[in-house]
Computed example of a mutant assay.
Amino acid sequence: MTTYAKHYPIRWADLDPNGHMRHSAYNDYAAQLRLDYLTDAGFPLAQFAKLGIGPILFREDTRFLKEISPNETIKVDAQLAGLSPDGSRWRIVHTVYKQDGRASATITVDGAWLDLRQRKLAVPPVELATALSQLTHHSTYGEIERRPKAE
């Protein structure tokens, strides 16, 4: 399993009028990290276009712990908190760390894959499901069960 993390410098555009990182910037960095991970795992955006699928979110829960100031460099990591057997549903927990190493926020996202042509949920190629399964498992990891369609 792989612990995936990257460092990002805080930009002027990341700040709010209070002089610290704005709330939505935390989620932007978590999203960027997910895309970076998928690219590094062999699934850049162009590959998703060829496959006709893309990631979507059902839920995004952010817990703010410590403020981030201008000119800090943050670290963002990703851990897998859940995956369905076919790889179609997933949960990822991100931790955003201040430059001094203290946790600043946790972001939990629940997502799936969308067939971009049919506009329906899709099962990803095995290689993509395998790539996700290679992330370090979070302490809350559990298999995600697919819910049957409502009739």
Rank of each mutant, 00 (worst) to 15 (best):
residue 34 R to C: 08
residue 11 R to G: 03
residue 83 L to I: 10
residue 18 N to Y: 15
residue 80 L to Q: 03
residue 85 P to W: 10
residue 43 F to E: 04
residue 147 R to M: 00
residue 3 T to N: 04
residue 15 L to C: 08
residue 134 Q to V: 01
residue 99 Q to G: 02
residue 120 K to F: 04
residue 79 Q to Y: 03
residue 18 N to E: 07
residue 94 H to K: 11
residue 59 R to S: 09
residue 40 D to R: 10
residue 93 V to D: 02
residue 113 W to A: 06
residue 148 P to D: 14
residue 31 A to T: 12
residue 84 S to L: 11
residue 137 H to T: 06
residue 63 R to E: 13
residue 90 W to C: 05
residue 48 F to I: 01
residue 57 L to V: 08
residue 74 I to M: 00
residue 36 D to R: 09
residue 72 E to L: 07
residue 128 L to D: 03
residue 51 L to C: 09
residue 58 F to T: 05
residue 13 A to P: 02
residue 101 G to K: 12
residue 89 R to Y: 07
residue 55 P to F: 06
residue 10 I to Y: 03
residue 10 I to E: 00
residue 68 I to M: 02
residue 1 M to L: 04
residue 147 R to Q: 03
residue 34 R to K: 14
residue 115 D to S: 11
residue 57 L to C: 05
residue 9 P to E: 07
residue 63 R to T: 14
residue 11 R to N: 01
residue 39 T to V: 06
residue 48 F to G: 01
residue 103 A to T: 13
residue 75 K to H: 03
residue 39 T to Q: 13
residue 69 S to A: 05
residue 76 V to A: 09
residue 68 I to N: 00
residue 20 H to N: 07
residue 137 H to D: 00
residue 91 R to D: 02
residue 109 V to N: 12
residue 61 D to Q: 09
residue 64 F to M: 06
residue 58 F to Q: 11
residue 19 G to R: 13
residue 102 R to Q: 15
residue 63 R to Q: 14
residue 139 S to L: 00
residue 32 Q to M: 15
residue 94 H to M: 10
residue 16 D to Q: 11
residue 49 A to T: 08
residue 97 Y to A: 08
residue 48 F to H: 03
residue 137 H to Q: 14
residue 1 M to Y: 01
